[in-house]
Design a protein around this nucleic acid. Structure first.
Length: 625
DNA sequence: CATCAGTTTTGAGGCAAGTA
DNA sequence: TACTTGCCTCAAAACTGATG
């Protein structure tokens, strides 16, 4: 089962740089100094000398190796040569002199490397003339090839020239073909390599794109693209294949076959081309936001320059999450790092992927480790009561999740590592960490970052928060009241962990609002519980909504709709099964199985008048026993 | 021939000013 | 107010050339 975490909303990021440098710098001609041989005149003799010198060097290095073995990196059999991958071959590969002598490369400035999977990689062939010899390098594009084929140190690549292509055989040093111990890392690497390759060669299509159109480019949406003055840059790589210099307008065809005329602006000084007027409208109507990816496939339709646009909405998959787990099951990196690495989102834009960062203030509801929250929808939430102390609710080891599903295993195993060293500032002992406890900020954070839970947010913002458990529509009570509730529960309500049955967030929301959810058999239903990953997806798959779309993206969009709606109506401020409970009544009557319930105006009401009211008390009682 | 540090080039983000 | 135009800036990639 794959869990999808949608990242939508107002997230901002930066596009993958569509840097494409296919230009070739002319040969640099360095005049030979006195006493040096000219490459042309003395080349044959020079080469012979060099070969002998090289062979001697290799023999010297390897000691017992034969000449043939030791010159493995050197040329072989005319149209072929081999290289052994080492860390130095990061951006360029030198082509052995013997190969360049056997094959006239003087007129070739770009070659196509064909990997064992049949993929084509466009690589610049750099000509460098140095004193005494001519140098050919596989330069721009080599890096993509290396990454895309996951070449590791010790791997041997055999290059064979065939017409205008170089066929490349790859012999893995480990011999078993397993280039990466972690298959999920492989997926990440492959994704990255594909991205790089696409930047370099727009003619290469992704697995998710239609492979028939050779003129397309891909762009990941960044804030500039969808801001008020947003525009879409057309990569120069694409422009080198398609001449748009005479076009003043193109038509974008969205996935629903709607046509969007878009003005093309030619930036003469910058030497580039942008989509301007009409582009923002396209984005808005197609819900294109930062982080999404658009693939623009170009063709002329009735002499009209037309881009068919495929939109890929931003996802983080379980694979990605897993790739950032340590062997202990603990996330080694935050989701921001996942985004950084996987989607190549620059650091300066990562703030847009954060959720309401703020300093803790007394009486605030705070959340640690947003990265973990985001990925696993499971977090601690507490009340900051000043002096770097947080009062929060914990269900103790092995009880934190309690969803009753296999998800528990995943969530628990993914929780933050806790220090086994007792903290003198915290109110609880390691073996007794359940109920309402007070922690110092450091222990509460457990190495994570502190975030502030928002109250009284407007509905638009609430819905835009892709995950639950970070904000609510409910209005907070004054801070002194909040702190009073928290401290009161700390001193007298340590046995109320069945009242806040679902999540620590229920405790925090109760402290902030005095509201408790009362339903049959269950008290408390936090936003986290409502927003468990996959639930809305499952809802879509199990309802007639699935019939509305066969497109996986459409399915996901539908799932998001269900998800947002369910979160909105499940928010504590919108629920009808919510009552205001005085904290003194709550604690004093827990032990006697009588929970005093009051309505929002503060008027006491009978539990009998509420569905499930009796169950509340019963539940509490049983928990005490 | 390998390596690496410094330099150059390039592409695109961002924004101010102009215009309709 | 929305949109267009032009240009500045900067990061990353590519390239150069000295040195071993």
């Amino acid at each position: 089962m794959e869990f999808l975490v949608m990242i939508m909303s107002m997230t901002k990021g930066k596009t993958l740089r569509n840097s494409l440098n296919v230009s070739f710098k002319g040969e640099t001609t360095t005049p030979p100094s006195s006493g040096q041989r000219t490459p042309s005149g003395m080349e044959q003799e020079s080469d012979k000398d060099q070969e002998q010198v090289s062979a001697r060097k290799e023999v010297k290095k390897s000691g017992h190796k034969t000449k043939e073995e030791s010159t493995r990196q050197m040329c072989k059999r005319g149209s072929r040569f081999e290289i052994t991958i080492n860390p130095k071959l990061k951006y360029a590969v030198r082509i052995p002199a013997k190969f360049t002598r056997s094959n006239d490369l003087s007129s070739i400035h770009q070659v196509v490397l064909r990997d064992p999977d049949g993929r084509a990689w466009h690589v610049n062939l750099l000509h460098c003339r140095q004193p005494g010899f001519r140098r050919f390098l596989l330069s721009a594009g080599w890096r993509d090839f290396r990454i895309g084929n996951e070449l590791k140190e010790g791997d041997v690549c055999v290059f064979e020239l065939k017409k205008n292509e170089m066929l490349v055989q790859i012999h893995r040093s480990c011999g078993d073909g397993s280039r990466s111990k972690n298959p999920l890392q492989q997926a990440v690497q492959l994704k990255r390599a594909e991205t790089l390759q696409q930047k370099r060669s727009p003619s290469i299509v992704t697995r998710t794109s239609k492979p028939t159109n050779p003129t397309q480019f891909r762009s990941t949406i960044v804030p500039t693209n969808v801001s008020k003055l947003g525009n879409m840059n057309i990569p120069s790589a694409f422009l080198s294949l398609v001449d748009l210099s005479t076009e003043k307008e193109v038509v974008l065809v969205d996935p629903n076959s709607r046509r969007w005329p878009v003005t093309i602006y030619h930036d003469k000084k910058g030497g580039r081309c942008r989509m301007i007027g009409g582009w923002i409208g396209f984005c808005k109507k197609n819900d294109v936001e930062v982080g999404d990816t658009c693939v623009f496939s170009f063709k002329y339709i009735k002499r009209q320059a037309t881009f068919q646009v495929e939109i890929t909405y931003l996802f983080v998959t379980a694979d990605l999450i897993n790739a950032h787990q340590t062997s202990d099951g603990v996330l080694s990196e935050g989701y921001t790092k996942c985004l950084k690495r996987f989607f190549k989102i620059p650091s300066k834009y990562m703030e847009f992927f954060s959720i309401s960062v703020s300093k803790p203030l007394t009486g605030c509801c705070v959340i640690p480790d947003e990265a973990l929250n985001f990925l696993f929808n499971c977090h601690k939430t507490g009340i900051h009561v000043g002096d770097d102390k947080v009062i929060h609710f914990t269900r103790g080891s092995g009880q934190e999740v309690g969803t009753g599903t296999p998800l528990d295993l995943l969530l628990v195993s993914s929780g933050p590592a806790r220090s086994q060293v007792p903290c003198s500032l915290c109110s609880y002992k390691q073996e007794d960490r359940h109920g309402v406890v007070s922690s110092c900020l450091n222990c509460f954070l457990a190495g994570g970052v502190l975030y502030r839970f928002e109250y009284d947010v407007n509905p638009a913002l609430f819905i835009s928060k892709v995950r639950g458990g970070t904000c609510t529509l409910a209005v907070s009570d004054p801070d002194d009241v909040v702190v009073h509730r928290a401290t009161h529960l700390l001193s007298k309500g340590f046995r109320c962990y069945n009242v806040f049955k679902s999540k620590c967030e229920d405790f925090a929301i109760y402290c902030k609002t005095g509201l408790l959810v009362v339903e049959r058999g269950v008290v408390g239903q936090s936003g986290q519980a409502i927003s468990i990953i996959g639930r809305p997806v499952a809802a879509v798959f199990s309802t007639p909504i699935r019939l509305l779309t066969t497109n996986p993206y459409g399915m996901t969009v539908a799932a998001v709709g269900v998800y947002c709606a369910s979160r909105y109506y499940a928010d504590i401020s919108n629920r009808r099964d919510v009552v205001k409970v005085a904290v003194e009544d709550l604690t004093s009557r827990l032990a006697t199985a009588r929970v005093q319930l009051v309505d929002e105006s503060g008027t006491p009401i009978s539990p009998a008048t509420l569905t499930g009211g009796a169950a509340v008390a019963g539940s509490s009682k049983s928990s005490d026993s």
